[in-house]
């Protein structure tokens, strides 16, 4: 579904992402891991079209997405969450999630000023969909709370609900477990597997190894912008190059 081909990105002289290629198959959960500064977040921003590529190509269902604006990728079915949570302050939780369903509506600016029946129906459909997403994440009781008044874990859940409200084909999760305790992380793992069952492909960047090893079908390891390995979780754990990248070149396995 998602193909990255020889993706390069440099900022000035810094090669943030260097010749990375991999594919994400429909319906799978793929993890991207790597030490700090490996280029994971940059890679994510490239896929979400927040930053343009230096060279290479990224295709979604065979369609080239590089050069599109971020909002256009949303319409193609890519939804994302942010590492440092970005909720819409000043809005209620339900409204915030309804923004996630923006691409499901058509009502334009002027139509918004006149509540025509057609648009009222559309609004109702968006509201129902958003409410369903909140229920799916067990936070329906927060629907009318202001987003600014939420606990950290709740904020993450709302962000996830907002991404799901778009009915995405591909869900990009940027460190979804950051700041969560082990129980919440385990719960998140179960949630992500349930999301996959709804035919949503998941690509996640994560530091929490327990989560990545538990739920991912495949893992890509990045180090200094380059792809170090791409394999199943069990093989990644045994890969000497990966161990070296994480623990340092000098590390030798105990004999």
């Amino acid at each position: 579904m998602l193909e990255l081909h020889k993706v390069h990105k440099h900022f000035g002289g810094l090669q943030a992402v260097d010749n990375v290629s991999f594919t994400v198959a429909t319906g799978c959960i793929k993890g991207v891991i790597g030490p700090n500064g490996a280029g994971k977040s940059t890679l994510f921003n490239l896929i979400a079209c927040n930053t343009p590529l230096s060279s290479g190509s990224i295709r979604l269902n065979g369609r080239e997405i590089q050069g599109l604006k971020a909002y256009q990728t949303a319409a193609l079915g890519i939804a994302r969450t942010f590492q440092n949570i970005k909720l819409f302050s000043g809005m209620k939780v339900l409204e915030c999630v309804m923004v996630g369903a923006h691409t499901r509506g058509r009502a334009g600016f002027l139509a918004g000023m006149l509540p025509l029946p057609k648009h009222r129906r559309e609004e109702a459909a968006i509201r129902d969909k958003s409410m369903a997403c909140l229920e799916f994440l067990n936070i329906a009781d927060l629907a009318h709370s202001p987003t600014d008044a939420l606990a950290f874990g709740q904020q993450r859940a709302v962000e996830l609900a907002r991404a799901l409200a778009a009915d995405p084909q591909l869900l990009l999760l940027d460190e979804p477990a950051a700041g969560l305790n082990i129980y919440e992380t385990a719960e998140l793992g179960r949630l992500i597997t349930t999301i996959r069952e709804q035919n949503i492909t998941v690509l996640l960047v994560e530091h929490d190894m327990s989560l990545v090893m538990d739920i991912c079908d495949e893992i890509v390891v990045l180090s200094s912008g380059r792809k170090l390995a791409e394999d199943s979780p069990t093989n990644i754990q045994r890969n000497p190059e990966v161990i070296a990248a994480y623990l340092g070149e000098d590390h030798e396995p105990a004999r």
């Binding site: 970005k86 409204e95 915030c96």
Partner: peptide, 27 residues
């Protein structure tokens, strides 16, 4: 009507909060 009950108004209030996140939502 625009600001409290419409898709466009919601999008405007959303971009006030975070332009990046609003773009990611398709705004």
């Amino acid at each position: 009507n625009l600001m409290t009950r419409s898709r466009s108004g919601r999008a405007l209030r959303a971009l006030h909060g975070s332009e990046e996140a609003a773009e990611a939502c398709g705004v």
